[in-house]
Design a protein around this nucleic acid. Sequence first.
RNA 1: GGGUGCGUAGCUCAGUUGGAUAGAGCAACUGCCUUCUAAGCAGUCGGCCACAGGUUCGAAUCCUGUCGCACCCGCCA
Length: 582
Amino acid sequence: MIDNLRNIFATALKQAFGDDIIPVEPLVVPATNPKFGDYQCNVALPLAKQLKEKPRAIAQQIIDKIDIKDWGNPLEIAGPGFINITIKSEYIAKQIGEVYQDENLGVSKINNPQKIIIDFSSPNIAKEMHVGHLRSTIIGDTIARILEFRGHDVLRLNHVGDWGTQFGMLIAFLRLEKPEVLTTANAVDIGDLVTLYKQAKLKFDQDKEFKETARQEVVKLQNKDPESIKAWQLLCEQSRKEFQVIYELLNIQINERGESFYNPFLPDIIKDLEDADLLVKDDGAKCVFLDNFVNKKGEPLPLIVQKSDGGYNYATTDLACLKYRIQQDKATTIIYVTDAGQANHFTQVFQVAKKANFIPENVKLVHVPFGLVLAEDGKKIKTRSGETIRLKDLLDEAVNRAKKDLENRLETEARNEDENFIHQVSQIVGLSAVKYADLSQNRTTDYKFSFNKMLALQGNTAPYLLYAYVRVQGVSRKGNINLENLNINQGIILKEDSELVLAKHILQLDYIIKEVEKDLLPNRLCLYLFELSQKFNQFYDQCPILQAEEEVKLSRLILADLTAKVIKLGLSLLGISVLERM
RNA sequence: GGGUGCGUAGCUCAGUUGGAUAGAGCAACUGCCUUCUAAGCAGUCGGCCACAGGUUCGAAUCCUGUCGCACCCGCCA
């Protein structure tokens, strides 16, 4: 819809002022206020300077070139020179019919699909996933789903922390304390592993002799000592299984390709940087000096790519990663979903990669940063004893609370439901509440985590959206109507205000999805779905469906069913499933 | 000290990239269930958009400065 309008206005602009006109983007946007119509074109104001004419006169000349009678009411010039566009309700009705029959609900596929890598989640081996991994995991997943839906070729990569000095430490410790862990699968669970890790760290910091053993263990690992590699693989396997539990709970698809994958390519990176004349030895470490990054004294800051002991660090891995993803995976867009604290790191790595000519013109590197999850008091989220909260515990609590809410409601409403129903509903409500609460915030800022707010049945929450969907299914059950078999041929009738408002909102799905694809802000999709649910509830309140006369009833059923379809699609893009009853 | 981000209603947050009288939700208060799930709807109350300048037809949005908060800053990731 909006694309059509933009084309119409672009053509009109050229007809009125010639091809040389410098276009102002965007040409058409949804109206900021319903009283200004459905869409508006604001270009006359900025063009005033360029054309040396009055804005209202410019607006008039644009209007004169537009033939509107098929789809809109006469265009109006308002205020200093805004052009207000109102779409005829017959045209809206026609569009609704088309969207209803389109399997993608009017969202077109992209013309030039890209190969996109999304790097997200990325927990560390031998550690448990905690709240900190929540945002990366679900934001990354949502972005992947949206880009896939638009037709891109998406590769989801889990850049797990599966390498580094800490493994030497852990393996050395286990050799002493729990050797069976290193030779048998499933000898400990992850919780114990985390405890052992902490003990190892303690010993590492206190015991000089142990520290040396740990160092030697790193060397053995790096030299591919079979016994050490075997131990390392067992540890990874153990963690992997634990991650999988979370991913299945959250319905996350992701391919593991950890840091260790890039080990063989690290020496080449140093060589590349050397060949590009970028490498400088400083204090024994090999570095690349950066532009626009200075230390306290105003001297350029280095990016260290090889430590003085010969070891590589994460900057090196990230460079190898970039090179591999571009050359081997043929990625044209690479997206990193990490916390905002790593913004500096990525600017630095991207800068060096560009200097080293790793990044061709057509490749886009995108850091998608997000803020922290805070406790309700605005401080860092922690358990009472001051430890980080395990992601598993957090999700379990959400589900348990959802279950309690449900059981309370069943009691007050004197409803009887079986165990299976209660389990399924609380599972979906609890998990979707956590996901939705996160995704509905603008990801760039920190947000306060509140079970009460996310599980609330009113407001911009998952349960509110789920309920709107359930209401439609309720109508179909009550009326004994199969929504799959509605006869669309009769056409849609939009007479009541709330019908028209709902219909117009449905038609914006296409625009919203494209906006989210562009700026990678899932909260905009959430807001759209929330407003959709609100508009549906208003319609539901004001327009009886089943009691209406036959033609109107069919039309309203289609509108309700289409709303449900949009909610279902929208939520699926957020990684959330719907319920038939709740 | 330098860098980045943030500061919007009592609370939690939007604000479509510079557009019209700044919007939601929660909380508080008032109405609406013999009618498709009231888990809803309608309404009232609530603002110096941190502060001060500047840019222009027009600023919560862009620039400069000040204050406050958070995060990052050479061999961890």
